[in-house]
């Protein structure tokens, strides 16, 4: 009886959003009299970071400090329509809607500043620190705050913007499946190192390494959150989770967290992620969206690593000790496959 090490990999892509389109997102932005902005949305933050992503996108587009922008979501009386937070559509669809709204608000802001400075709005730039100045002449400047006050109380201008992003609905050809699908695809490749105990059938993930191409990591700390948490969920899906362990027989269903198995804080594996950024032509600053795909390569990489370790193909998830042991038995014992480079 022994423990066998194995290494497996998988590579995937992920289509961002509802793939037929027809899923609009809207945003509204307005300014206080002192140039502090509120972004009103009906988008949902369920942990993925919608509030902060849209805050950074709005501040970048407006050209103001991030601290001068707060995102208010979600109240159906104030936030305009959005399809919802699913299909990794939030960053891409809502990010673009926020850009559109912020551009409109910025347009008014620069018009107001131009009137105060008596220059052409097209000659103005923002410094991202709360100032607007003439391109190439930083001394001819006005603060965003003074501009907003002038717009509000002197010029009678509304520094506000509205935005929508919509990929129109595609039709589908029933016979060939031809369609105009998603416009952005993220990519990933992942290597998993596992150890399989041929006496118990237990699989332990020793470490994982991945590369994710996400268009643009709008907030790298939040990308890390998503990818690390998603990899944990991938291990969980691969090795532990199911409400029907003998599917399609529905019996033996778990009712609580004692019976529904997931890795605990002591079951995590060291995980190293590398981010690649090939901007999506239609993404907000090129962003795509890491939320949904981050478990996907983990499942097959672990399955392939288990095969590499003991020569058992488990085609039915999850890869329980019972299935591994049945496979080892059917093979007449563990059959370790050739080691992969660096996987020893």
């Amino acid at each position: 009886m022994a423990r066998h090490r194995g290494r497996g990999m998988a590579s995937v892509n992920y289509p961002i959003g509802m793939n037929l389109g027809g899923d609009p997102s809207q945003a509204l932005i307005h300014s206080n009299p002192d140039g502090k902005f509120t972004v009103a949305l009906s988008a949902i933050d369920l942990g993925q970071g919608m509030k902060q992503v849209t805050r950074q996108v709005a501040a970048e587009t407006l050209g103001v400090p991030m601290e001068d922008v707060y995102v208010d979501t979600a109240d159906s009386d104030t936030g305009p329509h959005d399809m919802g937070s699913f299909a990794s559509r939030g960053t891409h669809r809502m990010g673009n809607a926020v850009i559109a709204a912020a551009r409109e608000a910025r347009g008014v802001l620069l018009e107001a500043a131009a009137e105060e400075l008596e220059v052409n709005a097209g000659d103005l730039v923002t410094d991202g620190r709360g100032n607007i100045h003439v391109k190439g002449a930083p001394s001819r400047s006005i603060t965003v705050k003074a501009t907003a006050q002038a717009a509000q109380f002197k010029q009678g201008k509304t520094i506000a913007g509205r935005g929508i992003f919509l990929i129109p609905l595609s039709t589908v050809d029933p016979q060939t499946g031809e369609l105009n699908p998603n416009t952005a695809f993220a990519h990933a490749c992942l290597v998993a190192d596992v150890e399989v105990d041929d006496e118990t059938g237990e699989v332990t993930v020793l470490k994982m390494a991945s590369a994710y191409e996400l268009g643009r990591a709008i907030n790298p700390k939040m990308v890390e959150q998503q990818l690390v948490g998603g990899a944990w969920m991938g291990i969980s899906h691969a090795l532990y989770e199911t409400p029907e362990p003998y599917y399609p027989d529905p019996s033996h269903g778990p009712r609580d967290f004692n019976e529904y198995l997931m890795p605990g804080p002591g079951d995590t594996a060291p995980y190293s992620v590398t981010i690649l950024e090939r901007p999506a032509p239609d993404g907000p600053f090129g962003g795509k969206g890491p939320g949904e795909m981050c478990a996907n390569p983990v499942l097959p990489a672990i399955a392939n690593a288990v095969y590499n370790a003991v020569g058992v193909r488990v085609n039915d998830l999850p890869i329980t000790p019972e299935k591994v042991l049945r496979g080892i038995k059917a093979n007449g014992g563990a059959r370790p496959q050739p080691r992969r480079g660096g996987g020893g």
Binding site: V228, G229, W232, G264, P265, G266, T268, Y271
Partner: peptide, 22 residues
């Protein structure tokens, strides 16, 4: 680290994968 893991082993997190918490 092992004692921290033991200390939070009764608390379930479905999002983070625990490492940041530890």
């Amino acid at each position: 680290r092992a004692e921290v893991i033991d200390g939070i082993s009764g608390n379930i997190c479905r999002c983070t994968g625990y490492d940041a918490i530890i």
